[in-house]
């Protein structure tokens, strides 16, 4: 494996992608560590899919640069071989059978692991003679994952792989993914708008909102350093310098803060609580939500 654990598996600098007049991703800086299972979370339209397509080399950047496994994405065949990709909605050739898809992978990838692919298909209970067009969404996703894994990539990118699946298929998919990650030394980047997927599978979190990385870090570390403080109403600006306020909510008498700090919180006037992943993600997503958006949402309800 050419990428050591210290290196970034994806490194973006000022990365942008423009479609006609509209920027789908703009001015994005990102460093994802190798050897982790990274969950990329953000609201729809944040640029997750564009970012991952850029990383897979399916799109070319309009601005900035992106390096994957130490080289420009999809620059040559060796670079293509390093990255496995499971696209959104896990497309497959509808007219081709499951066996055809494996043959496709075998012929198009030098490091193809045929035994593992066959074994996986057998274990999934897929009929090799069945056409991909007649597979269920879950089965098709599994087939796409099997193909991406048997390629033996250094980095596996999954773009909302389970978004269209029912809960059972979703769990099975994530299970297969986790087994594969445990088996091979593999970096994974997985995007989702569902926190529960990330919670189950990932050990590193990136929250992307409006092209910007709001927070990135080890999942456990993030959970350990974020706290909810509840106390009598007060101005959040007067907190100690090491406490970074992520979100603040006030009622007439009470203030609820979500703060990030490496140090213990000693102030006895706060009641301190841990937070779960969903709170964390929502706090970061909320932080950047334009003020006008929230009332409008409430009206819609």
């Amino acid at each position: 494996m050419s990428t050591g654990l210290r290196d970034s598996v994806i490194r973006a600098r000022g990365l942008g992608k423009k479609y006609r007049q509209r920027w789908a991703l703009q001015d994005c800086d990102l460093d994802l560590p190798a050897g982790r299972v990274v969950g990329l979370v953000g609201p729809n339209g944040a640029g997750k899919s564009t970012l991952l397509n850029l990383a897979a080399g399916l799109l070319a950047p309009s601005a900035g640069s992106i390096e994957v496994c130490g080289g420009p994405s999809a620059a040559d065949v060796a670079q293509l071989a390093r990255v496995g990709f499971v696209a959104q909605d896990t497309p497959a050739y509808a007219r081709l059978t499951v066996a055809d898809h494996l043959a496709l992978g075998r012929r198009l990838n030098p490091a193809w692991d045929d035994a593992a692919a066959r074994e996986r298909v057998a274990r999934l209970g897929l009929d090799p003679k069945q056409r991909a067009g007649t597979l269920s969404g879950g089965q098709r996703a599994q087939l796409a994952l099997t193909l991406a894994l048997a390629k033996r990539p250094e980095l596996l990118i999954l773009d909302e792989p389970v978004a269209a699946l029912d809960p059972l298929a979703r769990r099975e998919f994530m299970q297969l993914l986790m087994e594969a990650v445990a088996e091979h030394e593999l970096s994974v980047v997985l995007s989702s708008h569902l926190v529960s997927d990330v919670e189950r599978a990932c050990d590193y979190l990136v929250v992307l909102v409006d092209s910007r990385v709001q927070v990135a870090g080890d999942l456990d570390e993030l959970l350990a350093t974020h706290h909810r403080l509840v106390g009598a109403r007060r101005d959040p600006d007067r907190l100690p310098a090491h406490q970074q306020v992520i979100s603040a909510r006030h009622t007439d008498r009470q203030t609820t803060l979500l703060v990030r700090t490496e140090e213990p919180i000693h102030d006895p006037s706060w009641s301190v609580d841990g937070i779960n992943l969903e709170d964390l993600v929502l706090a970061y997503m909320d932080r950047t939500a334009p003020a006008v958006r929230r009332p409008r949402l409430e009206v819609q309800r």
Partner: peptide
């Protein structure tokens, strides 16, 4: 997307 992410240009 499947075709272009195999190890072939």
């Amino acid at each position: 997307r499947m075709a272009w992410t195999q190890s072939v240009r």
